[in-house]
Design a protein around this nucleic acid. Sequence first.
DNA 1: AGATTGTTTTGAATCGTCTCAAAGACTCGG
DNA 2: CCGAGTCTTTGAGACGATTCAAAACAATCT
Lengths: 339, 339
Amino acid sequence: MATRNIKEVAQLARVSVGTVSNVLNRPEIVSPATRERVFEAIKKLGFVRNEVARHLRVGRSRTVGLVVLDVSNPFFVDVAQGAESVADDHDSMVVLCNSAGDTGRERRHLDQLEQQRVMGILITPVETESPWVEELIARGTPVVLVDSPATGLQCSVAVDDRLGGQIAGAHLIERGHRRIMFVGGPMSIKQVADRHAGVTSAVAAADGAVELLTSSAPTLTVAEGRAIGERVAAQPPDERPTAAFCANDMMALGFLQAMASHGLRVPEDLAIIGYDDIDFAAAAAVPLSSVRQPRELLGRTAIELLLEEVAEPEQHRHRQVIFQPDLVIRESSALRRDS
Amino acid sequence: MATRNIKEVAQLARVSVGTVSNVLNRPEIVSPATRERVFEAIKKLGFVRNEVARHLRVGRSRTVGLVVLDVSNPFFVDVAQGAESVADDHDSMVVLCNSAGDTGRERRHLDQLEQQRVMGILITPVETESPWVEELIARGTPVVLVDSPATGLQCSVAVDDRLGGQIAGAHLIERGHRRIMFVGGPMSIKQVADRHAGVTSAVAAADGAVELLTSSAPTLTVAEGRAIGERVAAQPPDERPTAAFCANDMMALGFLQAMASHGLRVPEDLAIIGYDDIDFAAAAAVPLSSVRQPRELLGRTAIELLLEEVAEPEQHRHRQVIFQPDLVIRESSALRRDS
DNA sequence: AGATTGTTTTGAATCGTCTCAAAGACTCGG
DNA sequence: CCGAGTCTTTGAGACGATTCAAAACAATCT
């Protein structure tokens, strides 16, 4: 209730409001004596600068919005932490919003962020083509796409998911697997489609006859991974795939659990490889092989591109940064299989 | 760049700014004809209300800060989702901040939130006694403590951790364990201390001679849990505890992994029980028994208390809501042990 | 027509801070 | 002691929306 303002500080310190403002923003141009007086007044009154008024006046905000597909997927939490670490160094702030894969929620968050006049928005959009995002940009909010193809209207950072899928597929084939299942989700999600395309190309490139089965769940969750795993475990051994490539680690963990609860050994009976390399992957009881994405780096780079655009809007040219994924082989696919 | 303001809208619609404001805030008091004209102008110009200016004028913000100890612990993500679901219904917004257990970061976040004049702050403080929080309250920002004892200056929500520890201990004793290890962290963290106190009391209440070992790591992470697990696994079988009660599920998962990688069977060779019941606990290859906390409910209740305080500051009396934890028995502790 | 009541619309004041041109205070050489 | 430079400090507008007393307009009744 007792929120003090700059005027009260000025009164107590017997200076003008302009001087107080100067002390706050360019202390070096004000004489040590008055500066000290002002600081004392600030302390005595418990004055805290009203960032809202400041923002209104200067027109620039210090916060960046980050809208992700699923906060409960640690992958996105890590991306957020990467972004936040950079924001910290620029005394700005990241506000994390969860669209939960829902277009409506995504839109509401974008509206709120735009109304707050945030400095810019980092987003992993629910749908590749998003008119909302384009209008947002047209109205002047800088946007950086995370893990989504750029349209030329903005910068983007992404990881080559096709390559990731290919690496995973090649690895399984090299380990002797001839019957591989892709445990995926809706192909409308670009990441899923690309990873699938990657493993498909790896299969096509193999000499021998490698079979690729594809299953698809509505969402990329632990529960869905487990459900698909249950179905696979119920199949007769000679019909079962010998390896599963899961669209993300959440699904892979669910799949793994289904294997365990049906007494199937991983990797002996069935190898598993996931995607993202979240921390829980390494910590699984059978440590999970996974295609690693540079998660923090993704977030860091995204916000750096944004800050760059904000700093020099004129000479800024939109860029698309693409990182290479990385194969991390752990126990869940470590075994060589004699076909 | 092309951010339109209410004045431009007024001009185009040939009305005064006051009328535009009315259309935005109390459309019912303005005649249908002008209302329509104003809406058209808004659409044509792509006008988006400046929440910053609004906030400055009306003095009330629509955002709530939530400062948590560790975003990479899914427990806190779930708390956040609970809070957000309530915020959604009150068209306000939750901004999630991560103190990462660091007092400095915590303070920076609190400063930023106060400068933004947020409606209020929900916080799981790093340290129980926090002068910053008290000053914050004194200066007029409502605070609700999450999972921390209230000082009477604010509301709080928490789960009875002592009871949780006791339930876990009693369960293990009932299953025949006579040598139990508490896998914990710094006792300065209230949650850890309480859970430890709980299991201690359960042990004291047992007739037979039950031994309680205690180990402590600097942080409650998967890696630390694994490290302690490695040490335990290296002990000769007759010196090893037969059960481990971990301070949270992250540690329990790490511990579990160490068991697996050393060929120790869970629960046959060693039972494990965790705390929080995060989703990954059920999804572990040996599904983890855990003491469940009502995670979303915790977040929901916290923000409801805050909204209540904000709505009626006068007649508001601070309350402390305490929830009961719940034992979820899964495979990792399912076995009855014959001593 | 004039009075009365009710409905819409107006526009000036306000929120707390920043900015910047201009005024004030000092210093120093002549 | 004056005038030319430096430093410091001042104070009057913004910024964009909301509010509210008052004005304008409309409808109804004498």
